[in-house]
C-alpha cells in the first residue's frame, strides 16, 4: 500500500475531498453501517473501479465506470479514492 502510493505519488482522500473532474480509482469503502456498505457494493461502487467526481452541490454526483450516482455528504465520506 505504502509502496504503491509513494511510487506513483497517489493521493488518497474521501470522495468529498476529491477534486472535481479528476479521474481516480476507488481505493476502499469505510463505514460502520453494514446496510450502507451492502447498498454501495451491490450498486457497483466497488474498490478498484474508476471514479470521477462531477459535482459537489446540491449533492454529490459522481461517475463509476459507466454509471452516475447521486449521494449525500454522509455517504461520500465513506468512499475513499486515490488519484
Amino acid at each position: 500500500m505504502l509502496m504503491e502510493s509513494s511510487h506513483l505519488a497517489l493521493k488518497t482522500t474521501t470522495l468529498c475531498a476529491m477534486e472535481p473532474r479528476k479521474t481516480g480509482k476507488i481505493s476502499h469503502l469505510e463505514t460502520k453501517n453494514p446496510g450502507i456498505l451492502q447498498k454501495l457494493v451491490s450498486m457497483g461502487i466497488l474498490p478498484g473501479m474508476p471514479v470521477t467526481l462531477l459535482r459537489r452541490s446540491p449533492s454529490y454526483l459522481f461517475e463509476v465506470d459507466q454509471t452516475r450516482y447521486a449521494v449525500d455528504r454522509e455517504i461520500a465520506n465513506h468512499i475513499y479514492v486515490s488519484y
Binding site: T67, R68, I75
Partner: peptide
C-alpha cells in the same frame, strides 16, 4: 436517512 440514487441518463 441517507441518500444514494442511481442517476439514469
Amino acid at each position: 436517512p441517507t441518500f444514494i440514487l442511481e442517476m439514469p441518463p
